[in-house]
Amino acid sequence: MRSMGWLYPFRPRPWAGIAAEFHQIAAARPEYEYMAGVVDSVLESDVPLLGATASGDLIVVDRPVPRAPWGAVVVSGPWSQRAVMVPGWVRVEHVGAEGEIAERPVAEAVPLFWRFVTAGFGVVPAVQVS
């Protein structure tokens, strides 16, 4: 677990582009459907979060664009280079001073993501997530 955050600049991407990427991956590899679901929940919630991707993982930070070192909520994809993934499970991690990691079945990906975002950034989705 990282405890101090990342030191390189955060480069956010538009959420629509991130959604398109994960839906395209999920069409070819259904194991990625939960990643598309997490991104869709961000789009539906209209919250002030910034996102990026790296090696199939979703990296989310609070606005404004953070200066290094910055903390993030990371949702690891099935073929993550950050973690050894158990098939059918999702890993969500809060990278920063209050680091925490949880692994749950993919059916819990969206609520687990929002639990981490709420705890890490104080951001609550405008719509109920399931």
Rank of each mutant, 00 (worst) to 15 (best):
P66M: 03
R63P: 00
V42T: 07
V39W: 03
P87K: 09
P111G: 15
E21S: 15
A119I: 02
T53G: 11
G5K: 04
V86A: 08
E21L: 15
V117W: 02
R115H: 07
A20C: 07
Y8K: 08
P12C: 02
Y32Q: 14
E31T: 05
A20E: 13
E108P: 02
Q128R: 15
S41F: 06
V38G: 05
A54G: 04
Q24F: 10
V127E: 00
T53Q: 13
L112S: 04
P64T: 01
A19D: 08
V73Y: 09
A102E: 06
Q24C: 08
S45G: 10
V117I: 09
G71R: 11
W114K: 03
Q24Y: 09
W89Y: 13
D40V: 07
A16R: 09
P64K: 02
W70Y: 15
S3E: 11
V129D: 07
Q24H: 15
G99L: 04
D62N: 10
A16V: 11
P14M: 03
A19M: 09
S55E: 04
A119R: 15
P14C: 05
G51W: 10
R104W: 09
E103D: 12
D57H: 11
F116E: 06
P12G: 13
A119P: 02
Y8P: 00
A68M: 08
P30S: 10
G17H: 10
G120C: 06
W114A: 07
I25V: 01
Q24P: 04
R11Q: 11
E44S: 04
F22H: 03
V38T: 01
P125S: 06
A27K: 14
T118D: 14
P111S: 05
D62M: 10
F22E: 05
G37I: 11
L58F: 08
S76F: 08
Q24K: 14
G17D: 07
V110Q: 13
L43N: 06
V106T: 14
G51D: 02
P64C: 13
P125R: 10
F10P: 01
S130D: 09
G88F: 08
V110G: 10
Y34E: 00
E98Q: 08
